[in-house]
Design a protein around this nucleic acid. Structure first.
Lengths: 189, 189
DNA sequence: TTGTATCGGATACAGTTGTACCAATTTTCG
DNA sequence: CGAAAATTGGTACAACTGTATCCGATACAA
């Protein structure tokens, strides 16, 4: 019974690998089955529809990224500046997992822009929560600054835009990090 | 013969309308034909393959946005600050055309992330040119500032990220503009 | 042993896609 | 006017999609 859940995670992992390497559109039921080394039938056995598989995989990806951020916090002094940098950095595509995260998330976002059903999914509420959290952290670091929300929104947008440019190979993750740090230096002590 | 070119533009326009309203994946040959009020055969007559149609439409979209920016410059004093603001603003989804631009561009970018053939397309070189141009403009406004390129990259990434968040309905174009202006106020006199 | 769940392999089906060809009709233009 | 081009409509095809079903093999528990 716990085995069943592990199987589902393995299949969802296969979907994320395919999506990360060949794009979300390439993640067909057959491709996922092949990647997972199982039969198409089995994928159908564990997920009634493709949509269920997609949502499960998306959720798994989000949880894994959240776990990464948590681990990162554990090895960092809780100075607001470090917390903010950890969050913004973790959103950049620095390795295979975060690259997949960024690619899949953006693919999903593009679809959601013309599909209200997708837009309603909780997956899309995360940026708002991030915005609140970042605003609060900025408030701790710089209680003197007005328009903290404007700064938080700007930082998040910048991180997202930088991530996309890394994805496109316009610059590497290290350069993106420099840009990010440069802005953070300006804002935080 | 000039008529032929106009026809091609009409069909490409239909593609952009479909892509803007229902997403790039919904822009099938049949959907484009229907949207253009034309037979499927005719679309094939003017574009040998779907890929050619896509590239033509993309190019047309880029030219139209460039024209918008040019028109905007005509009604603006060539103060660097105004030039920069015009560019960054024009990249935001403020109306149907710029919304389509942003959506199609991002859709295309996501595909290019896993398709080297698409990534090699000149459509993808525009951001680099923008980066150079913005850096030069910033240099005029603030010759005293170090790391001008870092600032230019940050502004472009922010504009791109803000555009995406507008597309997702996370905030409206007016709010995005406020964030943009707030950062510009900081950089320029 | 019998039953029950797990899994693979194969096949099927309806729908959609890009692409292609054919005949007929309308429009354009020398 | 008459030839040439433009345009439509229909029909076709192979490939791919998600989904469904049947059969058989294996494993494990009652």
């Amino acid at each position: 019974m716990a085995d069943r859940e592990r199987r589902r995670r393995e299949i969802a992992d296969a979907l994320l690998r395919v999506a990360g390497e060949r794009g979300l559109h390439a993640a067909t039921m057959r491709a996922v089955a092949t990647e997972a080394g199982v039969s198409l039938h089995l994928v159908q056995h564990y997920f009634e529809t493709k949509e269920q598989l997609m949502l499960f995989a998306l959720q798994q990806l989000a949880e894994r990224m959240a776990e990464r951020v948590r681990r990162r916090f554990a090895s960092v002094e809780p100075r607001p500046r470090d917390v903010i940098e950890a969050i913004l950095t973790e959103a950049l595509p620095t390795d295979a997992e975060s690259r997949t995260f960024h690619l899949v998330y953006t693919s999903y976002a593009v679809l959601a822009a013309t599909d209200p059903a997708l837009a309603a999914h909780p997956f899309m509420a995360a940026p708002n929560a991030m915005e609140d959290f970042l605003t609060a952290q900025l408030g701790k670091a710089r209680p003197d600054v007005q328009d903290l929300r404007l700064e938080a929104v700007a930082l998040l947008a910048m991180s997202s835009g930088l991530g996309t440019s890394v994805l496109l190979g316009q610059r590497d993750a290290e350069d993106a990090l420099s840009v990010l740090r440069h802005q953070l230096d300006r804002l935080c002590p």
